[in-house]
Write a protein that binds this DNA or RNA. Structure first.
Lengths: 138, 138
DNA sequence: CTTGAAGCTCTAGTGACTAGAGGCCCTACA
DNA sequence: TGTAGGGCCTCTAGTCACTAGAGCTTCAAG
């Protein structure tokens, strides 16, 4: 049996966040001891570990709710879980692509000020002028 | 003179967002016509363009506020603007690095379900088990 | 038995918007 | 000149995923 603090340490999820997950129905309500404090078992630990990992991977809490609901009554059809994972992958790849464009533009902008002295200060101008950007971003 | 709607179309920033920027003091309050509607000039257009571009580059509204305050009384010292741009670049590179790790893990997870039939469904298990992950993420 | 950390609930705040209600204004067309 | 329907106004409240704080109770170590 773990206290909420022990669970927090073990998983790396902050205490108020654990309570928040419970509040929105993502984590099942644990039992309480005589003094009304939460007491978790291994299942609570596993559930929170699942959530933590999925959050780290960029899944929304809504996605995670669906994934957790799938678990248990899947049969041999995992299409939904797979669909979510793949759409998440596409999402991540898209974010990478956009961020790479941003990085290259930020590099361009930074180089305008390389010396730090005399005749520089095109940073603000560059930020105001979209027309120099290589491609689409945003 | 542009209406808020014209400004919105020209810059691609939504009307309520423009009003929001004004509310938080990021955009100066424009003049009003006889019927109390906002009327913008070229300066308003430029300011909003600057904000839009910087937002697309991932700057926070707070950063943008600083950048806009710098403009005008910089002298030949652009260290602050440059610092912000560079820290933003570091930030973006960091996000890219993390996302690449996530993508590779999501790929690994997706492949567990490649066929879609019989004996698959390790997606949920993989999400619950952090120990298989190659490196740190989150 | 005391003390201080950890737990409890509740409310409110964050960033960057977004949505909706309920009303006023402006323009184009008949 | 009248009117229809779009655009604009303010205000409040909601989103997501937490985070912070107040004010209280409980637990565990010494």
């Amino acid at each position: 049996m773990f206290s909420i603090g022990a669970l927090s340490k073990a998983t790396g999820v902050k205490v108020p966040t654990i309570r928040y997950y419970e509040e929105i129905g993502l984590l099942p309500q644990p039992g309480r001891n005589a003094g009304n404090q939460r007491r978790y078992g291994q299942d609570g630990m596993d559930a929170l570990g699942f959530i933590k990992h999925a959050r780290d991977l960029g899944f929304s809490l809504e996605d995670i709710k669906v994934l957790m609901a799938l678990d248990g009554h899947l049969g041999d059809d995992c299409a939904e879980a797979d669909r979510i994972a793949r759409s998440q992958l596409a999402n991540v790849r898209d974010r990478i692509r956009k961020l790479e464009q941003l990085a290259s533009e930020l590099e361009r902008i930074s180089h305008l000020c390389d010396g730090g002295h005399g005749g520089c200060c095109k940073v603000l101008t560059a930020l105001g002028d979209h027309s120099q950007c290589a491609g689409e971003h945003g």
